[in-house]
Every structure is written in structure tokens, then in C-alpha cells.
Amino acid sequence: MTEPLLEFKAVDAHYGDFHVLKAVDYTIETGEIVCLLGGNASGKSTTMKAIMGIVRPTRGEVFYEGQTLRGVSTTERVRRGIAPVLEARRLFPRMTVYENLEMGAYTRRRGREFDEDLARVFALFPRVEERLRQLAGTLSGGEQQMVAIGRALMARPKLLCMDEPSMGLSPAYVEQVFDIIREINRQGTTIFMVEQNANMALAIADRAYVLQTGAVVLSGPSAELRQNEQIRHAYLGEMTVA
């Protein structure tokens, strides 16, 4: 069996004295879509920051392609193929859409590969090509999310880490975003995705983890979790109402 693409082994994380992640284990295999569910403030975004090296584990270790990420800079992580779609999109609002895409490719050389990646983003999001010269801050929420995903793809990632990609989007856009995520995965990118929209997320994910106040309380194949009483109660019921 090949080694996992990403692995958390008993990871703890703190903000000062505040204990956020508690002995967390995740395993993400190459080619999968894995979803991380959990209520507000359960540590989902902190998980993403630990992958990117913005938050450093206080105990335990994160492995990527079999190697520890301890002491590896964020720049180097991006260079090795980990790219984020940040919570609430976080585009550079006073830069053009094109410049935002360039920032996604910051660690990579310009040239043929850059043009190929740009073409791939345009193929996924024709709207992005139309808005290229517009300031990112002037786009609608849905358009911003397209740019945010496109920006991450410009890093040509092996592992795409998405923090609540459907947050704040209208239902039509949510549907579209999940379609795109599936398409990106089909094209060969592994996806680790934080979501509150459990219904949609479990529909496209292979496996999922459930985080509660910083600890993994449930994990397994999506199909199993969808049958789980606890999940149905805590997440799915809520979502059908919303």
C-alpha cells in the first residue's frame, strides 16, 4: 500500500493557552475527497492552518507525502503542492482578478505551465475570464469564490484544502461549487474540504471526519456517516431546514 498524501498523527494545537486541537488524527489518500465536518469553533479552520504551517502543532506531527512538515515553511509547502481556498474567500480586494490568479502561482515560474493553468481555470470558470481586469473586491460572492478556487488551482496543487467553499453562497452557486470540486478531483487533485453543508459535502466526499471541540468524534466513509443517527441529527437535519 502506498503512503497517504497527508497524515495528522496525534496533533495538538494551541492559541496561547487555549487548547484547540486535541490529539487529532486524519489520513488523506491520494485521489480522495475527504470532508471535515464540525460545528462553529470546533477547530476546522485551525486544521487548515496547521496544514499550511500558519499554526504549528504543539504536539504530534503532520506528514505530507510521507515526510514530516515540522519546520517546513508555508512557502515550501505551497511549492510542494498544497494550496488553500481560504475561509470567506479572502481575495486581495484591490488587485485585479488576474493579479489574484498570479498570486496563486506565486511560488511557480511563469511560462508555458502558467498559461496552461490559466486556460484550465478559464475552462472551469468562464466567468473568471470575463472579469479578468476587474478588481476582485467588486465581484459578487459567487464570482469571488470562483476566483478563490481558481487562484488555488494556479499553484497546480496535489492537495487542495478548502475551508467552507459553500459559505455565504446562494443555492445555485453552492450546487455549482460542489460540481466544480468534483470535477477538479476527477482531474487528479486530492481534496480536503471543511464544510458546514454536510448534506452536499457528504454527497461528493469519499470519507469524512467529524470534529467536536477540537477532537475527532466520528470518521468513516460518507455513505456510512449519512446513515449515522448522530450526524443526521446534528448536521443533516439542520441543513435540510436551512
Binding site: M52, I54, T74, T75, R77, V78, R79, P84, L86, R90, L91, F92, M103, G104, Y106, T107, R151, A155
Partner: peptide, 8 residues
């Protein structure tokens, strides 16, 4: 922070 996560 976003810039950092782009690798800056």
C-alpha cells in the same frame, strides 16, 4: 495571512 498562504 492570505498572502502568506499563497507562499509569500
Amino acid at each position: 495571512e492570505a498572502a502568506r498562504m499563497m507562499g509569500v
